[in-house]
Design a protein around this nucleic acid. Structure first.
Length: 421
RNA sequence: GUGGGUAUAGUCAAGUGGUUAAGACACAUGGUUGUGGUCCAUGCAUGCGUGGGUUCGAGUCCCACUACCCACCCCA
């Protein structure tokens, strides 16, 4: 019984009282993305499971144990998208968008699904804004993507997010580094925490951002990826910083940043807050030079990010940033009796036609009830129609804040009430 | 998957084994047969997440389950 009134674990309704916040962020993001020349792309919620296995990497946590995967009635293995990049990359190939302008720059807003244990800032269904730039090796593409996120976040009035960047190398230098790191860690193996012991074989890079104090101490003395970069990667990392400076984006280098999805190469970055609990990464992204090839396309490089909207909302409320309130109703048309109702309906229609938010009671309330209703919905005015008004063909317009009343002809009501956003 | 915390009305809650489970807000009706928000009056949990147990007696103690929150892990 209770199941019927309970959303599945880790999902959240966005109730009417909160929707304006989402609409505000969506409007802002759309504006900024458009200004940077990114075009919107919409892709399916479901994809073939193999897309994520090949794209994200079969050994990652996301693919191993967090995907909502099922077999459809045609026997296909289908998965609810756990992130946005793989689907965008697939659409890029399938839509032959590589035949168009290069680089191809897209943005999207999507819901994503991962089977995880919910906590603050982590849901099973969550939403992200994302952007992808396909087709450029130039670090200015990375810098531009980061600048877009930075400008967006700054424009919302969130000051306390810090941008951390790193380079995680490429298939040439990463294996070399990995070997160095494993050699170093093997000397401290017994001291590592249990999870890091298992990381040692599977993904030694992850030991670097372990939160256990002991592992942190060990990590502090570990060789650093940045020192092990090949010539090309080192050059690119320098170019990235030059680009960010040129865009006027402040950043700090954090050699401990590691991406959890296998497709990342070179640039890795995060916008992090320390005020919204343990899940502080609001935006994370980087470069993925081999994803498209992995999916069966040509060797097209890419760079992009995903930004968690729920986490962003947490940051916003934590920082006290202003979100413009939803527009209030301009007027409730109040009618005294049955006789006045027809005229009242004509009036509400004409007010709506003039672009106002106008309401009329549809619940059979008496006059007093209608005024209460006006109050509850926050209507700025009431336009009252009774016997006198019908005779004189004038409505009584009452300002609900000041209580002041004026008589206006029906055809002048819309301009008398006006519109306020 | 592993830990920790919480669960009393629509909401926030008081209640620390003993008569009828505080209070506030919200809501409903009335005070006003053409005027709301303010004010006043009245109403609003045979019930304390669910199921067991201890006890003369359980919202209060014990056990199990469920849900939510937080943290690990991982990431947006």
């Amino acid at each position: 019984m209770t199941m019927l009134t309970q959303a599945p674990k880790g999902t959240k309704d966005i109730l009417p009282g909160d929707v304006y916040k989402w609409q505000y962020l969506e409007r802002k993001f759309r504006e900024i993305a458009a200004g940077y020349g990114f075009l919107e792309i919409r892709t399916p919620v479901i994809e073939h499971t193999e897309l994520f296995e090949r794209g994200i990497g079969g050994a990652t946590d996301v693919v191993e144990k967090q995907m909502y995967t099922f077999e459809d009635y045609g026997g296909r293995s289908i998965t609810l998208r756990p992130e946005g990049t793989a689907g965008a990359a697939r659409a890029y190939l399938e839509g032959k968008l590589y035949a168009g302008v290069r680089p191809a720059k897209y943005w999207y807003e999507t819901s994503c699904f991962r089977y995880e244990k919910p906590q603050s800032g982590r849901l099973r269904e969550f939403h992200q804004f994302g952007v992808e730039n396909f087709g450029s090796h130039d670090m200015l593409a990375d810098a531009e993507v980061i600048a877009l996120a930075d400008e967006f976040l700054r424009g919302l009035g969130v000051a306390e997010l810090s941008l951390r960047i790193n380079s995680i190398g490429c298939p040439v230098c990463r294996p070399v580094y990995r070997k160095q790191l494993m050699e170093y860690l093997s000397g401290h193996y017994d001291a590592l925490c249990d999870t890091c012991k298992s990381r040692y074989e599977k993904n030694p890079l992850r030991v670097l951002d372990c939160k256990s104090p002991v592992c942190q101490g060990i990590a502090a003395g570990a060789p650093v990826m940045l020192d092990a970069l090949c010539a090309e990667c080192a050059e690119d990392f320098a170019a990235l910083q030059t680009g960010l400076n040129a865009f006027g984006v402040g950043f700090e280098i954090d050699p401990m940043i590691v991406r959890g999805l296998d497709y990342y190469t070179k640039t890795a970055f995060e916008f992090v807050s320390d005020r919204i609990g343990a899940q502080g990464t609001v935006c994370g992204g980087g470069r993925y030079d081999h994803l498209i090839r992995e999916l069966g396309g040509d060797d097209v490089p890419g760079v992009g990010f995903g930004m968690g909207i729920e986490r962003l909302l947490l940051v916003l409320s934590e920082s006290g940033a202003e979100i413009p309130a939803a527009r209030r109703p301009d007027a409730l048309v109040v009618f005294l009796n049955e006789e006045a109702r027809g005229e009242a309906l004509r009036l509400v229609k004409s007010l709506r036609g003039a672009g106002l938010i106008a309401e009329i009671d549809t619940a059979g309330r008496n006059m007093k009830g209608q005024f209460k209703y006006a109050d509850r919905i926050g209507a700025r005015c009431c336009a009252v129609l009774g016997e006198e008004e019908l005779r004189s063909r004038e409505a009584t317009v009452k300002n609900m804040e000041t209580g002041e009343q004026v008589r206006v002809r029906f055809e002048d009501a819309a301009s008398a009430i006006g519109r306020r956003d």
